[in-house]
Design a protein around this nucleic acid. Structure first.
Lengths: 226, 226
DNA sequence: CCTCCACCAGCAGGATCCGCATGGGTGTTC
DNA sequence: GAACACCCATGCGGATCCTGCTGGTGGAGG
């Protein structure tokens, strides 16, 4: 299991890190909130172990709130010397999943961390993509806009899926050929244009705000606003 | 949120139930492990609050183990007078998600219960069906047996999905016609037989243990053992 | 042994889907 | 404003894929 430990106390950090590693987990360590936040946001961890109090501007609660604000649902265990009920409640309310007060027995920390990691949260595959009022359900292979169902052909579906997975980013023709058509060469035709066109016809026809945008000399992009 | 409270101490039970209800949750209460297990297994709760020690044969740990054995992933909070670290570890190891020792502040109980309920566990749609070594991935529309990928046609996929969703149960032809073919009449042909046959050919060919079983004069069933 | 039910291979019709080409439009550059 | 490059839309043809039916065979049950 990949665990991020954010703890400024060098002693505690070493102790916890060592113990978790011996239990077979991979542990990254950050000594302050800023670094911790960066790591947590950029890499995928199974569990975060956060000191409640941290030096610098970003403390544990702040860190969690920021992560949750970004849609990150990674389970968080708070570790803190603050034992007051109010403090614990505050930590949990902020989006924490567990709260353990120092001093603690390592066995309990381990058990709690593993309980958190047991959750399906990490491996939950996205089953539904959304851009503005356009939704794509991977399970039922269904496309809806503003609640109305839209019939889409297989290749169009793959195309749309790829666009939506990169919503807000320009997707080049070469990328599309690779990922949607499995072509590793240039077919010298306008296949892509045609399919984008058909998709546009189905998605944007009858709606005022178009979602699929052409980026001249670059590719296409799907995004809410024009 | 729907919460199941399993607690034999009448005082504690009343106290907790009242508090949770005032916080806007729906609370069911069971006074012993047997009833608790039955409720937990039959109805869908968002969180279980279990006393660690319970009268009768089924105590908290036993209850959780049984539930987990059934594939039930409902988050569990243990409530216990047993404060020893060993006890807590035992509870968490058994499949519990949190452990709170009596006496406790209600505010903390509430915060922890809500933290547990926040998880996406309840609404996670099944994305993968499994029967023995046969797996069906709804997302990628992929069938594998013993790790080997098996190509399947759309109708065959629907048929297999329906069989697997009712694994261990006999599925009648009428049911299949309704659910897989959207026929609401008898086509007077052996369409189903043919498709089942094709499915069999793909799934069971080359494996010693057949999975699709014929139930004469009734229908078909998919199941691990013969 | 007889009967019914289920199985399977082959076939052919059909529908879907997809990619291409063409002609027209729009933005860009000189 | 003319030439050019890029992009858009539509219609068409082909090919694949899929599906349902038929008819003969095998096996279980009575």
């Amino acid at each position: 299991m990949r665990i991020l430990l954010v703890e400024d106390d060098v002693e505690v950090a070493r102790f916890v890190k060592k113990g978790l590693q011996e239990a077979g987990h991979t542990v990254e360590h950050a000594a302050n909130g800023r670094d911790g936040l960066f790591l947590a946001a950029s890499e995928g961890f199974d569990v975060l172990v956060l000191d409640r109090m941290l030096p610098g501007g970003v403390d544990g609660v702040r860190l969690v709130e920021t992560l949750r604000g970004q849609g990150n649902r990674c389970p968080v265990l708070f570790l803190s010397a603050l034992t007051a009920v109010d403090e614990r409640v505050k930590g949990l309310k902020a989006g924490g999943d567990d709260y353990l007060t120092k001093p603690f027995a390592f066995a309990e920390l381990l058990a709690r961390v593993e309980a958190l990691g047991r959750r399906p949260s990490a491996e939950v595959p996205t089953t539904r993509l959304k851009v503005a009022d356009l939704e794509l359900d991977l399970l039922s292979r269904t496309v809806t806009r503003a609640g109305r169902k839209i019939e889409v052909q297989p290749r169009e579906f793959r195309l749309l899926e790829h666009l939506m997975r990169h919503a807000g980013q320009v997707v080049t023709r070469t990328m599309l050929l690779e990922k949607v058509w499995d072509y590793h060469f240039d077919p010298q035709t306008n296949v892509i244009d045609v399919h984008v066109s058909r998709l546009r016809h189905k998605l944007d026809k009858g709606f005022d705000k178009p979602l699929i945008h052409t980026v001249r000399n670059a590719g296409y992009m799907i995004r809410a606003q024009a």
